[in-house]
Amino acid sequence: MKLLKYTFALLACAIFTNCSIDNDDNEEDLSGETGELILKFDNSVGDQDFIFETSYSKSNNESFKLTNVKYIISNVRVTDTEGNTFTYPTEENVFIVSELNGNNAGEIYITLNDIDAADYTEITFGIGIDQERFALGADGQGDFLDLASEEGMMWSWASGYKFVRFDGTFSTDTVTDEPLNIHMGSVGEALDNYREVTLSFPNTVLVREENSPEVHIVADISKVFDGATTVNFADGYDQVHTDETETPIIASNVQTMFEVHHVHND
């Protein structure tokens, strides 16, 4: 009888110890837990913050001033330390980042809800609308069509999205304050200008129920013109709409705009 008591006591000990060992191994059990992740987009030009109507110089002695800076971000997904990828629900996974919607610091917030709690190391997102989403037509678009239409991110003469909008004026050695309009997008299935970027976080992003980490993404607008390829307004890059040669170059330049500057975990 006494022996049995001891056995029970030992068993209980074993169970408790086991449990505590388990806890130490996995640190914390995150299954079923979700939290928020906030993306802060911050437009810049080189090492300056972007400000409307301010003149910025680029290569080739050219300069530009913008009144409109907008781009579509979609298919946001984050990868954790274990290599698992969490993709935001497709229907909601499309956003318009517009400088006009920025706070006084020129930051535009995108809040992602119900992200699986985990330790994330990198983020991937697309610029524009991929062919798969476009092929859905109206399906799963909800109110995004209205939003895109209101924000001037759709062509009215064709049923396509403008992936980016940079409107303003430019000056060169020979002209001053001429109209500048960079409206790049895909054209049906004929021209696919959707691009994706993957950015590593400088430190691990801890998504938990009780903390909403903020990822500060800087988008360097100067890369639109001086990115992977340098383009000049004087050579026709002052008006970019659907041109088959110009738009893929702008798309690839826009792809190089983004950088995760820092992360706040609380």
Binding site: F134, A135, G137, A138, D139, L145, S149, M154, W155, S156, W157, A158, S159, G188, E189
Partner: peptide, 16 residues
């Protein structure tokens, strides 16, 4: 050929 998906075609006349 300005529209390649039937769902999105009506946007053109509607907003023109």
């Amino acid at each position: 050929g300005a529209a390649t998906h039937l769902d999105l075609q009506p946007i053109i006349p509607l907003t023109s």
